[in-house]
Design a protein around this nucleic acid. Structure first.
Lengths: 118, 118
DNA sequence: CGCATGTGCAACTCTTGGGTTGCACATCTG
DNA sequence: CAGATGTGCAACCCAAGAGTTGCACATGCG
């Protein structure tokens, strides 16, 4: 149920792809609020069919954001923050990196401005 | 060129949607590396047409991740880390929230286990 | 001016992804 | 056992999005 991915890049990729869909984010909120829930139960709280929910859960599972365990005839899904957390850190690092580069570029531009003022 | 959005939710939404596409992420990397670039220049470094790049830049601009300024007959785009940073914070907060809820649920479950052991 | 270069707009194709319905299979419960 | 409940699988529909091509318009430069 939980397929392994290779590297942080792939993980981040999956998480971003999953989070792009609003229904999926809503699904995660519902799961976080309840701790555990089945596709059928979740579908009752959403304007979509159970099958649609199942597909979304499959995507979230592949991204590592959710985990499903079978209990008797039902499958209970729960949220798993690790992947989300990793992606948050990745984004923060990326933002910081951009800031760094932009600062450097700005500094260079100002230096050039001093050397040859118009 | 820079349309205003309302609220953090909308901003996060746009950023997540933008970041879901690999070409767009690549575009952001290129922009961060160069500081400034035109759609035509960027297209040369990518396996897609200039028009495709223009469309992607429009999406990124709407999400607030990029800003385009006209210089003569060309439009130079630059990365703008603010929105990315905001989304990173949002994600980190979300992850923390999930952790909190999961911890609570686990605690409750354990308490129930103590009260009525099987 | 005349040409090269860069952008903007529009129409079109094609694939992907979200969503649905229908039915078969498994599992609990009276 | 029989019915109820929950999942799984498959085929199908449809809109959105990524990408393309063609051409018109603007701006820089010899």
């Amino acid at each position: 149920m939980t397929d392994e991915r290779h590297g942080v890049a792939g993980e981040v990729d999956g998480v971003l792809g999953s989070l792009a869909d609003p229904t999926r984010r809503q699904l995660l909120d519902l799961l976080a609020a309840r701790g555990e829930a089945t596709a059928t139960t979740l579908a009752e709280r959403l304007p979509v069919s159970r099958q649609a929910v199942v597909k979304h859960l499959a995507v979230l599972d592949a991204a590592g954001l959710v985990d499903g365990r079978r209990v008797g005839r039902e499958v209970r899904y729960a949220v798993r923050p690790a992947a989300l957390d990793a992606t948050a850190r990745w984004m923060a690092a990326l933002a910081a990196d951009w800031d760094r580069r932009l600062a450097t570029i700005k500094r260079v531009a100002e230096a050039a401005e001093r050397d040859s003022p118009h």
